[in-house]
Amino acid sequence: MPNRPQPRFPEPHTEPYWEGVKERKLRYQVDKDTGDVVFYPRLHNPKTGGRNLEWRESSGMGTVYTYSVVRQSAVPGFREMGAYSVAYVDVDEGFRMLTSIVGVDDPLTDIKIGMRVKVDFEEQDEGEYPIPVFRPA
């Protein structure tokens, strides 16, 4: 199993997001006054400063906006992983998230910009939080 870094707390913005992840839910915020989608989590809508936000659950479906396959890494926990992907995925509800695309035979050839993907909650060796990653849909 992978051993990705865990989120750390206390951190007031992201705690509700990660509590959702623990229940296998990908959550995001919406401004109830304007309908704006807010992501990463915040206490305010960065377009207006408004604070009337609510949490919603995403379908977990999205499209790869762009990606890279990291071949050389000095990041602890990733150094020995071999080639691994990082990607921005545009989730269908209208937010863009940094993530990783997993579940392909060869990340060098099997990941494409524009491909449809679905969230998966990847269990980790250590720590109580799974990590949301995406697989080909």
Partner: peptide, 22 residues
């Protein structure tokens, strides 16, 4: 931990991969 680091640290993005995505 920050609002940003808690969302990005799990993915092992390096500075070079960030530019590579562009």
């Amino acid at each position: 931990p920050t609002w940003q680091s808690n969302m990005e640290m799990p993915y092992g993005s390096t500075l070079i991969s960030n530019y590579a995505m562009v």
